[in-house]
Nucleic acid binder design. Structure first.
Lengths: 163, 163
DNA sequence: GCTAATTACTTGCATTTGCAAATAATCCGC
DNA sequence: GCGGATTATTTGCAAATGCAAGTAATTAGC
């Protein structure tokens, strides 16, 4: 790594042997970039309902899955447990969700949509679909489906690392 | 929305008219989920170089694009400007990057890799590629390329909203 | 060439985050 | 059924974040 590595003076672009990293073809970059745009735009969109993005994620997950444990909700939303714990606390105070200790296992928490939360989801879901349509402008249904499927595969491929 | 909406007692799953939101087919969800897994796993991987994810994003962008302005770097990394300003400050103190006011327009900042930063990128790039390979396990080259291309399209589709 | 508007970044401040440690309830093997 | 793991969630704390407001340099209009 040190052999003949005198810094070239000729060009502006870095060089130092290493073939330039191809950011524009790097999958994590492409995913992050698309996700960030989606997130920023959609956050602003739903701000008028007084809902922030993480809250929407929780609401959407609960609408889709029904009531579930905090841990399940964390897995479902990709929100870290301690963050989620506090988030659900706030959302409970805002009457968006309801919390109750589970019968049977009283360590566990059962989180479900509260009535006002249901109303908010009902209002936002159409917007969400509109955004998805926008994101997929120019895609054939087959392409859109392929994209969904491949993203799921990527997700699964990264699943079994923790041991 | 209030008509006959007595809360059903029979089932556990929510209902309340609204067709259940299909989270598993919702593109923003799929993107966020894959991105979050990638981010968490890769963060841990590079922690042993004392580098955090956002720092890696900056380093990778600079390696790929060469020196650029803070604003460009913000666009390139999807990191918010004020966050990036402070991040680049820390990275400068850590000798990962170098900062200089631009000649010509002295408001602007020119940010480039410093020598130790280059070493760190050189060490991490192979890991990054390994992660990408892992994420794309079971993909044909054609599929991988299609995925990249579709993610770029999604990104572009969401570009022209701000007016 | 002077002033107003714009651009490029920085900073103050209130909040949110994430890790690690704490708490609380269950489970496991005798 | 008792004590030590284990699991589910919460909380303390330091650090990171994002918005809005501030600063500094440049450009535009006259």
């Amino acid at each position: 790594m040190t052999r003949g590595a005198r810094r070239s003076t000729r060009s502006f672009r870095q060089s130092e042997d290493l073939p330039v990293f191809e950011l524009g073809r790097f999958l994590p970059y492409l995913i992050n970039r698309a996700g960030a745009r989606l997130a920023v735009a959609f956050s602003k969109e739903i701000a008028r309902y007084g809902i922030e993005l993480q809250e929407w994620r929780v609401l959407a997950a609960l609408q889709a899955q029904g009531p579930c444990r905090l841990g399940d909700l964390a897995a479902l939303t990709s929100i870290e447990m301690s963050t989620l714990s506090r988030l659900v606390g706030r959302m409970t105070r805002a009457r968006l969700v309801e919390r109750a200790r589970e019968n049977g296992d009283r360590r566990a928490l059962q989180v479900g949509l509260a009535a006002p939360g249901r109303q908010v989801v009902a209002a936002i879901v159409p917007l969400a679909h509109e955004y998805e349509r926008l994101a997929l402008s120019g895609f054939t249904p087959g392409e859109a489906e392929a994209l969904r499927e491949m993203l799921s595969r990527v997700y699964r491929n990264l699943g079994g690392l923790p041991p």
